[in-house]
């Protein structure tokens, strides 16, 4: 499988709000740590090395 680049998450506005809410009240360092955990958890869930490499490359390239 390759990385999905079109809209794939129903109710993404909800998820976006949830993401912001979960960082609420955290220091910058705590937010970094939470993000790191989240990436690790999601990476394991996705479980496809190629997709992850594409995602990493895309994240890097967009900046």
């Amino acid at each position: 499988m390759s990385l999905i680049k079109t809209d794939n998450l129903p109710e993404h506005d909800d998820f976006y709000a949830e993401l912001l809410a979960t960082h609420k009240g955290l220091s910058e360092a705590e937010s970094h740590a939470l993000n790191a955990r989240l990436i690790l958890i999601l990476a394991n869930h996705i479980g496809e090395r190629d997709v992850l490499s594409e995602a990493v490359a895309l994240a890097r390239e967009v900046d």
Partner: peptide, 23 residues
């Protein structure tokens, strides 16, 4: 910096969630 953050979070997760143990 971020290297330490990732390392520490792997350790933290490993205490709670099976997948992270192998990491």
């Amino acid at each position: 910096g971020i290297e330490r953050t990732f390392r520490d979070q792997v350790l933290k997760l490993a205490g709670k969630v099976p997948f992270a143990r192998g990491w």
